[in-house]
Nucleic acid binder design. Structure first.
Ligand SMILES: [Zn+2]
Ligand SMILES: [Zn+2]
Ligand SMILES: [Zn+2]
Ligand SMILES: [Zn+2]
Lengths: 145, 145
DNA sequence: CTGTTAACGAGAAATTATGTCAATAAAGAA
DNA sequence: TTCTTTATTGACATAATTTCTCGTTAACAG
């Protein structure tokens, strides 16, 4: 198990390559959206991101589109906090889980949480071909405890 | 591990008792909302439920409020399907997980999936006081495979 | 440098969810 | 049963969230 490291998750070159790999263009707007989430390890709602980025001339439409793209690239994860708020958290590309604080509504990423045994068990019992999962943990973060 | 049984999950008396236990009133509208979800094991969005129930004189406002109440009572679970659609699935009161078919959107409940070991591990590593979790599995159901 | 076309912003529109308030009816007491 | 209390309801307004349209701009391959 490892906790997400602080600081820049992706260099400019890595980010450009990530977009270009799937035929997407690397634009200043897309970098700005990504950097914003990168700078907020606890996550943001689209509304919060738009409020900040509109001051930099980036439109709400572009924020929505970029959040969608980053999700498909696997480096932006969504969580529901207890009140149904839809938040997004930056991460390195790949699968991970998130811990959500019920007090301050912030989300922290954790990786290497193996559920393969459970998936196999469920596949056997139900006949489902299990392809993946979404797992969120709820609780109180150290600051709020 | 156990799979959800078919048919009526709660008798009228059980349902009334469930509401009254927490000071909520048992109304025809609330029963109708519950029975609708009970009759749709694959789940419904609020919009779908409202479309059906408005034909029976039940308002959108009441559908939203009842869905919220049933969630708090623990017998209505939400899932995101792969496209972010927000669906609700009836279940017996209590904690459980759901398997969602990516083809037919069918959601099947399963219980007794123990994550306590994982929760303790995460609590140690992160300092979070872990209080609960939300876990969905995605895959293909036997009929769609 | 040039051409192609994905991506952009502005604004409208659609969808989803919540708030207000007078009328109604569920639950418990008498 | 009847009465009293008050949570619940429906209609409607409003707010919040998300998607769409279209003319313009600029990323990127050649
Ligand atoms: Zn996982
Ligand atoms: Zn906190
Ligand atoms: Zn669980
Ligand atoms: Zn299926």
């Amino acid at each position: 198990m490892s906790i997400k490291n602080e600081g820049s998750l992706l260099s400019k070159e890595e980010l450009k390559a990530l977009f270009n790999r799937t035929g997407l263009r690397f634009t200043p707007q897309r970098e700005a959206v990504w950097r914003l989430f990168e700078a907020h390890p606890n996550g943001l709602t689209v509304a919060e991101a738009t409020a900040i980025l509109s001051g930099r001339g980036i439109s709400q439409t572009t924020v929505y589109r970029t959040v969608g793209a980053l999700q498909e690239l696997g480096c932006l994860k969504w969580v529901h906090n207890q009140l149904g708020e839809h938040r997004f958290v930056a991460s390195r590309p790949g699968h991970s889980h998130l811990l959500v604080c019920r007090s301050c509504a912030k989300a922290v990423e954790c990786t290497d949480c193996d559920l393969s045994v459970l998936e196999k068990l469920i596949a056997q019992k139900t006949g489902f071909a299990v392809e993946g999962h979404h797992l969120e943990f709820y609780g109180l973060c150290p600051d709020c405890a």
